[in-house]
Every structure is written in structure tokens, then in C-alpha cells.
Design a protein around this nucleic acid. Structure first.
Lengths: 193, 193
DNA sequence: AACTTTCCGAACACCGTGTTCGGTTACGTG
DNA sequence: CACGTAACCGAACACGGTGTTCGGAAAGTT
């Protein structure tokens, strides 16, 4: 027995409504009532499927997980998972843009990070110099940082270019020069100037 | 005319109450009423000073800003701003721990990030290879990532050790080895195995 | 066509928000 | 010290969102 069509229809209606609203409104200002209105779904129906707005978000992010997993399995496309992710974001640039700032963005980004981290935990090997969990977290946050910067400061940039910058940032780190004022004491240098 | 003692007392009472609550409860589950009870302040008084819980948070984070600025000016201590920040966090380890997970944590961390980014914008010079704003964001998120990992996975580690790891992560990046499954297509390698 | 599952929507109790206002307290100044 | 002013209190209020319940209508399945 397959899943009842009504169930499928209701759920995707809710997923889509949430995404549509995120484009327009800060996530944490979106109410369940907004979603009901947008999806044209009854109140009690919503709570029959999800316990809260946050659960709806988490469930709808499973799409992203399957996207990543597929990107890795289909080596066919010639794209690395990293590249596939950037291309995907380019398609939904407006959503990403909405996620950039503010409070709601932070919540959604956190949820996205968890999804990506979960996938990476199955992929990445152990390494010697840096603890694995730290490496995963760093990888995820670098993805996040690059994407935010891309969408906010260089919206015209292509996914391919953005991904190249991401690689360099991830594997080379930042030059000591630019970080110096943060990493070293000011005292000595100041005296000389 | 100095600031009225009552004003100062009320505000610090609220700041302190918020911090005390954050140790115990997820930030976004904390209500204004919780804060009032904890601080023993009247409802109308609260709204005479702050328009919302979020503004209270933002204002209370100004303490962090002054901490960082001082750490740079007083080269005396021998500590870099980076080191000072890690030492500071070590003192308030329990608060940091509370900020680790969940939804409330994301909101607070976002706010902390903004403070640090603001300070760095005044310190960091222009660099050639990486756009400045991207470098700042990367620096902030690496601080954030390292601290989370430190508090969650290695709570016993000293601030000095954590800061060393942070430096390496920041300026060296991640090795290509560990990132390979994410950065390269799976197809070719798989066939050979 | 009969049976089952889902959906609807109105009604409900509950809780947190942000504002108002008159009375009380404590502060700073002269 | 005493006066005037500013801050604090707390009760009351309207408002809006949450999550649950339940009987009847509608759509799905076999």
C-alpha cells in the first residue's frame, strides 16, 4: 500500500508554503497561521503531521540531504558534491538571500549546517593533524561563510567561481598578514610606528 | 550629573539575570517574564529600558566589545586579542556550553559574531588574495567553530591549547586529504577500489 | 459501492507580549 | 535637610499565536 495521496499533497503543500514564505519573511516571524493560509491547509491537519514549525523545517530539509547523497553517487554529472551544492544554491539564490541576515536566518542556517554535517560524518576519513569532528565543523562553517558572502557581497558571481574561492579558503586558510592584528599583541609594533 | 543609580542598578540586574538564565535555559525559550522574575524588576520598568529581549541581549554584548578593545590596547598583559578572547570564554565556560546546541544558541552566537566582526572591521588591513569582508567572516566563524568544538568535545582543554589549534586551523586550513570525498567526484576513485 | 482514512474548521483554554496609569519610593540638588 | 523630579512598581488590559478537541464532510483505497 502506497502513501495516501492526500497525505503527500498536504505535506508538499506545507513544505512549499514554508519555502515561499521564507523568501519574503524572516523565519522566526513566520507563524503557523501564516503557513496554513499560504498552503491552504486546515489547522488541525497541520498538527496531525507536524508538531511544530521547526519540525516542518527539519523535515523539509531532508530534500537537501538526498540531493547531496545523490550528487556523490552520480559521479556521472562530473560534479563534486561541493560543486553540486554551490550549483544548487545558485538555483535558489533568492531563498539563500533571505537566509542571509537576521535572526530567522541564524536558525535556518543552523539546521542546514546539521544536515550537511550529518552527511559529511559518513564520508570523511580520519586525519592526523586535526580532530575529525573539528574538521567537519570547520568544513561546514566554511561552506556557510562562503555562501553568505557570495550572496551578500558578490551576488553576480557564478557558482563555479564561488566554489573555487571556497576551496582556496578551506584548504589554504587565511594569510598571517591579514590576521596579524587579531593574533598578535599590538604593543610592540605600535611603539615603532 | 551622573547616571541615576536606579537606572544603572536596574540595567545590570537585567543583564545579569539574562546571563544567569542562559546557563539554564535555551535562549529562545526564555521569556521576558522569566527575566523579570529573575531580576526582580517590574514589567513596565523593563519596557522603559529595552524594547525586547533581543535588545537586552544586544546591549549586554557591549561588554564583550569593550573587552576585546581593551585586550588590544593593553598590550601589557602580553596576550593577543585572540588569546584574551579564549581566556575570557574559559572563565564563562558554563555559559558557552549552554550556547552550544539548539535553537537559542544559534541566535546568541549570531549576535556574538556580529560584535566580533564589528571589532575586526576596524582592525584588519586589506589583503590581496582574499576579499576583506570574506576574510573577516571566515575569521569570526573559525573562532566560533573552534570554541564550540572545544566546549563540546574537549571541555578539559586549556584556553592556551585551544587557541593554538585555532591558529593552525585558521592559517593553514584543512588538508586536502580529509576533504577529498567532498571536493572530488566519487566515480573514478571508486572504480579502482 | 462500501469502507477507511484524511481533512476541515470552529471553538476552546492557555500563555507571552507590550502598553497604560496612578501611586510609591529613592535619588540628586541646592 | 527638604524639595522636586525621575524611576520604579504592579495590576489590568487588549492582542495575537499555540496546540488540542471533535463531529461532520470529502477524498482516497480495495
Amino acid at each position: 500500500m502506497a502513501i495516501d495521496r492526500r497525505v503527500a499533497r498536504t505535506r508538499t503543500a506545507l513544505y512549499d508554503a514554508l519555502v515561499r514564505l521564507i523568501r519574503v519573511k524572516d523565519y522566526d516571524l513566520i507563524t503557523v497561521e501564516d503557513i496554513l493560509r499560504e498552503a491552504d491547509v486546515g489547522r488541525s491537519t497541520f498538527y496531525a503531521h507536524f508538531t511544530s514549525k521547526d519540525e516542518l523545517l527539519a523535515r523539509s530539509l531532508e530534500r537537501l540531504r538526498t540531493l547531496l547523497v545523490k550528487a556523490r553517487e552520480d559521479g556521472e554529472s562530473g560534479w563534486s558534491p561541493s560543486r553540486a551544492l554551490f550549483e544548487h544554491v545558485a538555483e535558489f539564490a533568492d531563498v539563500q538571500f533571505a537566509l542571509a541576515g537576521g535572526r530567522g536566518g541564524a536558525i535556518v542556517r543552523e539546521a542546514v549546517d546539521e544536515v550537511i554535517a550529518g552527511v559529511l560524518r559518513q564520508w570523511l576519513p580520519q586525519a592526523d593533524d586535526i580532530p575529525r569532528e573539528l574538521a567537519i565543523r570547520q568544513l561546514v562553517s566554511t561552506v556557510n561563510t562562503t555562501m553568505r558572502w557570495w550572496q551578500e557581497s558578490r551576488p553576480g558571481m557564478s557558482a563555479a567561481e564561488a566554489e573555487v574561492i571556497f576551496r582556496r579558503l578551506l584548504t589554504n586558510g587565511l594569510s598571517g598578514d591579514i590576521c596579524r592584528p587579531f593574533l598578535e599583541t599590538a604593543g610592540v609594533d605600535r611603539e615603532q610606528a
